[in-house]
């Protein structure tokens, strides 16, 4: 592997050329509906366009997760029927390995079902709670109403726009802070106007769309966090995001006018 310690050169562009990003896509066979795969494509392409090597590996239930390998975990949404298998896998040794990986500085992005399963628990109606991986200080209970529609959020790094489709209502504990404030849509629970959660380098939210391609600032924030784990703080080269910003603007207009 080509790897330069940060101190070895004063030129950040030299570091860029030598960098590599390792992504683990968690349960792509069961937790990959609603186009969440686009987030992995965005992370890959935006890294490649900057000359950063990218490798993506899939983790499927039953295989052993290597806590040392990944710089970034992606965990998408799935059908309810896939979540029992995934939940079981995370209650075993793989849950501990994921927590270890995140404690070592890996970043994570989770959407919808993935977001719920990174929390403490998911409480279904009239059934015992399903424990989550516990890397986010959030709890989700099942709601009586399904939140389906465009979702527009104001976050610290800019706007985020996407599409929500969930009946779970997620509430944040003191160690997580909201990813943003809901401008249009329902967000975490339809009550407190918050959307998503951030805790360290772990992000969870309800934004499908896919999220990262048309909200590129968040993609770059995650790439930066992930590279930091093995390469120290980095400055990413800017990209021409004209098309991405146009898509975001169009989606924001749709969210405001037709939701």
């Amino acid at each position: 592997m080509r790897f330069w310690p940060r101190a070895a050169t004063p030129y950040p562009q030299c570091i860029m050329e030598a960098m590599a990003l390792r992504i683990v896509h968690l349960f792509p066979d069961l937790m990959s509906i609603y186009g969440d795969r686009g987030n992995v494509l965005a992370l890959q392409q935006r890294s490649r366009w900057r000359g950063i090597d990218v490798e993506v590996r899939s983790h499927t239930a039953g295989a052993a997760l290597d806590p040392d390998w990944a710089d970034l975990y992606f965990f998408g949404g799935g059908q309810d029927q896939g979540q029992d298998v995934v939940g079981e896998d995370l209650q075993g040794p793989n849950g501990a390995r994921l927590r270890e990986g995140i404690a070592s500085g890996a970043a994570a992005l989770s959407i919808c079902g993935g977001y719920q399963l990174l929390g403490h628990e998911y409480v279904p109606d009239g059934a015992p709670p399903i424990p989550g991986a516990g890397v986010l200080d959030v709890r989700t209970t099942v709601g009586s109403r399904r939140f389906v529609g465009n979702l527009l959020v104001k976050s610290d790094g800019g706007a985020l726009v996407g599409f929500e489709n969930h009946s779970g209502k997620t509430y944040l504990g003191p160690r997580a802070r909201p990813l943003g404030r809901v401008l249009v849509g329902n967000g975490n629970n339809g009550e407190d106007r918050t959307e998503g959660a951030v805790q360290g380098r772990v992000i969870g939210c309800y934004l499908h769309g896919s999220l990262l391609p048309k909200n590129p600032w968040l993609a770059d924030r995650l790439i930066g966090w992930a590279l930091e784990r093995r390469h120290g703080p980095v400055t990413l080269a800017p990209l021409d995001d004209t098309a991405e910003h146009a898509a975001q603007a169009q989606a924001m207009e749709v969210a405001r006018a037709r939701t």
Partner: peptide, 15 residues
């Protein structure tokens, strides 16, 4: 398009 008959969620294009 993203009207009801198209599906309001355009995420599917990423699949």
């Amino acid at each position: 398009n993203d009207r009801d008959a198209d599906g309001r969620d355009v995420s599917w294009i990423w699949d």
